[in-house]
């Protein structure tokens, strides 16, 4: 695997203050939406990011693009530290890294035509001077995403969900970005349209050499499109590795449970499918358990899980990492440990 990392996050944290009810609205706690994420996204790959609702996937995606301020850790983009970029540097980042949003009905301004929406990045970054050149570029972009350039003068409400999402993708591509975050980009589309948009994204990724962060809770879609898959739980990446390895032989108990919930298309296989049903609910991100954050629901929990916060370590296939003490106790002790040793 090449060492060419496009986006690198180290210890990334996004904590939101939780305010109390009183008149002074004192800070009552901290919601740890993203809590110490280490993540490398390689140039030209598609990284799938999965996890259940509220685990911080979207927050992480937004924080990587500096759309939500991070409260700790660092983000590198193409070798430069973008953690506290501002002004011209930030604008250049906005050109080089785009976002496709979940709801195509909300992400397009209803009062602007498709042409106006798609050409906004061109105007903002001064990429095409002159009205006719911009119009021409908008036409190219619409064709790129499989829309008829003749629809440029229409308004969003005249389109279906899939078409709108194509417009959203065209807008994200207008600045010729290197990196695209697709935040649940197919979640609110009809199933038949999901496949089309998914294939469009994959085609564009290959054609333009894009690096894609594909955030989704749909494991089948993620397996279909991704080179690697990262699994998030309660604000932390708990497993990451090649899509085939994570998809078929997960090393972290949480991933195992998550995968066992995916229905299989073949009836015979579906009957054989063993479901691992987790006990309890996800703990609140404002009261993260000590030690391993999955220990409250893990079927394999043992002593070190209470005290030691597991770090990602090699497990299973080459390139696969899991944050679980079952593969050896590695990590930072929550309290002063007395003689924690690696498991044989």
């Amino acid at each position: 695997m090449s060492d060419d990392v496009l986006v690198r996050a180290r210890g990334l944290e996004v904590h939101f203050p939780v305010r109390g009810q009183g008149l002074r609205r004192k800070q009552a706690g901290v919601l740890r939406a993203v809590d110490g994420v280490d993540l490398d996204i390689l140039r030209g790959e598609t990284l799938g990011l999965v996890g259940e609702s509220g685990c911080g996937k979207s927050t992480l995606g937004n924080a990587l693009l500096r759309l939500i301020p991070s409260t700790g850790g660092t983000i590198d983009f193409a070798g430069t530290d973008i953690t506290s970029l501002s002004g011209r540097g930030l604008r250049e980042l906005r050109r080089r890294a785009g976002m496709v949003f979940q709801d195509p009905f909300a992400s397009l301004d209803p009062r602007r035509t498709v042409a106006q929406t798609v050409s906004e990045p061109l105007e903002v970054h001064g990429l095409r001077s002159g009205r006719s050149e911009r119009a021409q570029r908008v036409g190219e972009l619409l064709e790129l995403v499989g829309l008829d350039p003749a629809v440029a003068g229409r308004y969003p409400h005249e389109f279906s969900g899939g078409q709108r999402q194509r417009v959203g993708i065209a807008r994200a591509l207008a600045g010729e970005p290197d990196f695209l975050v697709c935040d649940e980009a197919i979640a609110s589309l009809d199933v038949s349209v999901q496949a089309q948009v998914l294939n469009l994204l994959r085609g564009l990724q290959r054609q333009l050499g894009l690096t894609l962060l594909f955030i989704s809770h749909d494991l089948s879609a993620v397996r279909h499109i991704s080179d690697r898959i990262a699994v998030m739980y309660l604000g932390r990446v708990v497993e990451i590795g090649p899509a085939a390895a994570v998809g078929t032989d997960p090393q972290m108990p949480y991933t195992q449970a998550l995968l066992s919930a995916v229905p299989l298309p073949h009836p015979a296989l579906e009957r054989q499918r063993k479901r691992i049903v987790l006990r309890g609910d996800v703990p609140s991100p404002s009261a993260v358990p000590s030690g391993c954050r999955f220990r409250t629901r893990c079927p394999y929990v043992f002593e070190p899980c209470d005290d030691v916060d597991p770090a990602l370590q090699p497990a299973g296939a080459p390139g696969q990492l899991a944050a679980c003490h079952l593969h050896g106790v590695v990590g930072t002790p929550a309290t002063a440990p007395d003689g924690v040793t690696a498991q044989p």
Binding site: L65, L67, L90, R91, R94, R95, G98, M99, F101, Q102, D103, A106, S107, L108, D109, P110, E120, P121, V124, H125, G168, R171, A172, A174, G175
Partner: peptide, 14 residues
Amino acid sequence: EEVYVRASRSVGAS
């Protein structure tokens, strides 16, 4: 709070 405002910010609009 509309998504299209966030979208506009995401492409670098002032």
